[in-house]
Design a protein around this nucleic acid. Structure first.
Length: 469
RNA sequence: GGCGACAUAGCCAAGUGGUAAGGCAGAGGACUGCAAAUCCUUUACCCCCGGUUCGAAUCCGGGUGUCGCCUCCA
């Protein structure tokens, strides 16, 4: 079965064919580190984290590069406002980024280069463009000449004239053409700057990604990804400058994550509805946020509000408890019997197939999650009716969830562990009370344990406990 | 104005032309000392109007509505 993915460039689902299988060269546009990341940023990183993991699961050797934009107008402005130097600001928010994203179970990229660490590569790339007359110096700046690049607009599917109609023309611009974009920006007093053949200055926004992608991956990479709002101008410009420099296609597949809205409104400073991950994880379990994000398709717009997280919490809880119960059943399970023929056995095979089928279809995580629930029902039935359990069957079921969770990472797969000694004793005391039908005492103990965060559930095979979520 | 996406139950959300996955919430039932959990049952003129087809949520045309991009933005 083939893996298909939607390519923004062609607007089609295409079969995934990397340049050099099993290698996959993957570049994701990372954060500008001037502030804490918000949930919209988080969606992008979560979604591409899952895509990366799925590619690995499919046997690809993925090399993931994700940059930090640590120099640009916003960085300079914010640093000035807060009385930091630009590098200090970057340091601070790179740390914050790493902590936030770790909470959301996003694995770090293989390489996380910073723009300021790659000024020579950036200057060299600009040099190539100037040499080829694809770019021109103008009054201390260097601009990319969009008029000389034929396919400008290919990614955003806009014609040059159409883009031109909406382009802003500032008086005093040093551009030849309103669509031209800056590759190198002349230093203004007090700004951080590096020496270059065109004078002191700093890189423009788009050029860093091209330079670093080429430096760490290759001139033609397999996957390039980011949020949907990067399609124009950022990715369009990356394509133009990279292709103009190398003559080779820059990326085979362009992947873009959909927007995340808050209460059906776009997240924006002016509406005051920007939700940072930092704040959200104080109120919600990070895995509930991750689960919510993965329960929609990555290209669809996704709405966010607290009711939706609540619904996700309930759903995820159901899966979590089911998996915990599988784990708890394991120690008491009997040896594998030969005749493992059961409904669960068949359901497991179905689930494996359907999970892959969903993920192969442009990373349909919503479909994949549905498979987890469907199998979950069968597992619950088995836990209820399959006693005494067969070890092999339980192991297979746990194995499936473990594998799926290596990709989605929405559940805690570790064994729930043991309770403190005194709590175990309390549970035993309650059992005795229940045997002599002393319901008052039994309920008293149950309430006391609840106050300590332990919930008890009585089943036909004994009392089960879980920690309060 | 140009370009584009989307419209599926109370809510969220899959869906590859062949009588509509899954989740949340609700209702009823089973189990239970009570609870919790779990299981069973239950809820859809797939935005509207045409067309193609034996057959359309799915394809085509036309509406309507929502959102996005065209400007820094994940």
């Amino acid at each position: 079965m083939a893996l298909k993915l939607y390519n923004t460039l062609t607007r089609r689902k295409e079969e995934f064919r990397p340049v050099n299988p099993p290698q996959v060269k993957f570049y994701v546009c990372g954060p500008t580190v001037y502030d804490y990341i918000h949930l919209g940023n988080a969606r992008v990183f979560i979604v591409f984290d899952v895509i990366r993991r799925y590619l690995q699961h499919r046997g690809y050797r993925v090399m993931l590069v994700q940059n930090y934009t640590d120099i640009d107008d916003k960085m300079i402005q914010r640093a000035a406002e807060q009385g930091f130097t630009v590098p200090e600001l970057a340091e601070r928010f790179i740390d914050a980024y790493e902590a936030d994203v770790r909470a959301l179970k996003v694995k770090p990229a293989d390489i996380q280069p910073r723009a300021t660490g790659h000024i020579p590569q950036i200057i060299a790339l600009i040099g190539r463009l100037v040499e080829k007359r694809a770019a021109y110096p103008s009054g201390g700046d260097v601009y990319f000449d969009t008029a000389g690049y034929e396919n400008y607009g290919a990614l955003s599917h806009q014609k040059r004239e159409e883009l031109l109609a909406g382009a802003r023309v500032d008086p005093g611009e040093k551009k030849r053409n309103p669509l031209d974009f800056v590759l190198w920006k002349q230093k203004k007093p007090g700004e951080p700057a590096w020496d270059s053949p065109w004078g002191a200055g700093r890189p423009g926004w788009h050029i860093e990604c091209s330079a670093m992608a080429m430096h760490y991956l290759s001139e033609t990479i397999d996957l390039h990804a980011g949020g949907a709002d990067l399609i124009f101008p950022h990715h369009e410009n990356e394509i133009a400058q990279s292709t103009a420099a190398t003559g080779s296609p820059f990326a085979r597949y362009w992947l873009h994550a959909g927007y995340l809205n808050i209460d059906d409104a776009k997240m924006s400073k002016s509406l005051g509805n920007v939700l940072t991950v930092r704040e959200l994880v104080k109120e919600h379990h990070p895995l509930d946020l991750r689960f919510l994000i993965l329960s929609a398709h990555y290209r669809s717009p996704l709405n966010f509000n607290s009711e939706l997280v609540e619904a996700s919490r309930s759903g995820r809880q159901r899966l979590q408890e089911m998996v915990d119960n599988l784990n708890r059943a394991l120690p008491g399970a009997g040896a594998a019997s030969a005749a493992a023929e059961s409904r669960l056995q068949a359901a497991l095979e179905q689930a494996r197939f359907r999970f892959t089928e969903a993920m192969d279809d442009d990373f349909n995580t919503a479909g994949a999650v549905a498979v987890l629930f469907e199998l979950g029902r069968d597992c619950n039935i088995y836990l209820k009716e399959g006693y005494p359990y067969q070890r092999g069957l339980l192991e297979k079921a746990i194995g499936f969830y473990r594998e799926a969770n290596k990709i989605l990472d929405i559940l805690e797969m570790e064994n729930p562990g043991e309770l403190e000694h005194d709590i175990r004793e309390a549970i035993a005391r309650r059992e005795k009370a229940r045997c002599r039908k002393d319901w008052t005492e039994a309920d008293r103990i149950r309430d006391a344990l609840l106050a300590r965060g332990v919930i008890l559930e009585d089943t036909p095979y004994g009392t089960r406990w879980k920690k309060k979520a």
